[in-house]
Design a protein around this nucleic acid. Structure first.
Lengths: 229, 229
DNA sequence: TTTAAAAGTTGACGACTGTCAACTCTTCGA
DNA sequence: TCGAAGAGTTGACAGTCGTCAACTTTTAAA
């Protein structure tokens, strides 16, 4: 079984697929653009959901703070992805915070309006069901991958996931721009361990690190490490 | 912040709430009863989803086998709960296996028929959206609780979750009947560690263990341990 | 440009917990 | 009832990785 990166990515892009034009117009009417500086907070854990969001530019990390005060990154949304609808749909507080990883631009659809349209548009409802179901599977896969793995393996998996998020069409190599602390939060380890693992990867010629950047040179080897060999 | 057990349980019981009578009749027509012996398999990881299930009697564990061959328990369903609809809804293979923990009885609704009815019944669709959204939150909470915790804390959390699953109305005390290996799978540790943790809990007067049973004597103390104090 | 704060790096240390092995206890079918 | 297979128990041991501390490098604001 090869490492299958598609098992780790949501399919929220298709949220508005096949939604009828007049609903799309309604959706446009209830949307507005939000600008976020690097580190800016879109919503905070524990707050009431007010909108559904789409990333227009940049990247948004979804973070949860544990009882011990340590936070973990749960997901990173990038251009084209929709998020923030889950707690809205089940009428619960946000279990996570959404924070901008770089200067970003987000389209916000008013929550009440969105719910109203979702109830009337059966296509939108069914897209939601499909997206929510699939996201669950992604989670199961991610947890299955991260638990019972060594720090080295976990960091490898996260780098592969980030590789997809940060890759650009016009370049062969992917440059991941993320702080060591964030990589640590995402791979459920500490900053120090990330530094040590990355310097090991560097020795092996798997990555190049410079300043706050990680460039993946040997994706294949990373996949082998991620699978625990 | 107190330990809030409701954050760890799905709300699938309400799947058919407010669904119109004629749809309910249709659902009845596509259902059949399945008997399962202890250890019996309802479906296996990687198989195609064929039905939606409701527990009528007994308990079903949902298990995932990692690449390393180690399995982890992801959830335990008990009487009244519906499950197995997620992969059906997003047209994916089962990411997990469903195995009976004791002699159980399950009602199975044919998958194709269920999907057809779900598309026509807006109440059912919306229940699905709500249930799926909420289940996601449960997951986030569980992961937040289990990660970065010691084995002792994790076992405590799992005992509290199992306490809810196994509790009976006519008794003050809850008796959890589960093998040490299963408790280990659920709390992401090993059988040996579970034994050691349980004997520690026993010393402290928190639980009584006998044969394959665990009786919780001091839930409050367990909650304090679960929270990491 | 300067400078303070933030981020990153490295080393030392030890606790936790997974692994292995040997053993006992329990269950259940022949 | 017996015996074997499975489940549970206990001890010894070692590797991983989190923590702390001291330090360097980078960032960004004054």
């Amino acid at each position: 079984m090869n490492f299958d990166i598609s098992k780790y990515h949501f399919k929220s892009n298709k949220l508005f697929n096949d939604v009828l034009p007049h609903f799309m117009n309604e959706l446009k009417d209830i949307s507005k653009i939000v600008q976020l500086k690097k580190g800016g907070e879109l919503y905070r854990e524990g707050s009431l959901p007010k909108a559904v969001y789409k990333v227009k530019k940049g990247k948004i990390k979804i973070e949860q703070t544990g009882a011990d005060g340590k936070s973990r990154i749960v997901y990173v949304y990038t251009v084209g992805e929709y998020f923030g609808f889950r707690p809205l749909l089940c009428n619960e507080k946000h279990p996570v915070s959404a924070i901008s990883l770089e200067d970003s631009e987000v389209e916000a659809y008013d929550g009440t309006g969105f719910l109203d349209i979702a109830k009337r548009s059966s296509n939108l409802s069914f897209n939601l069901v499909e997206i929510l179901s699939f996201e669950f599977n992604v989670w199961i896969n991610l947890i299955g991958s991260l638990s019972h793995k060594s720090a080295k393996e976990r960091v490898a998996i996260i780098l592969l996931i980030l590789n997809e998020k940060y890759k650009s069409n016009d370049k062969a190599e992917t440059t991941i721009t993320m702080s060591k602390a964030d990589i640590a939060c995402y791979s459920e380890t500490t900053e120090e361990t990330v530094v040590r693992v990355l310097s090991f990867f560097k020795e092996q010629g798997i990555v190049i690190t410079a300043a706050r950047k990680v460039i993946i040179k040997n994706k294949q080897l990373l996949e082998i490490i991620a699978e625990g060999f």
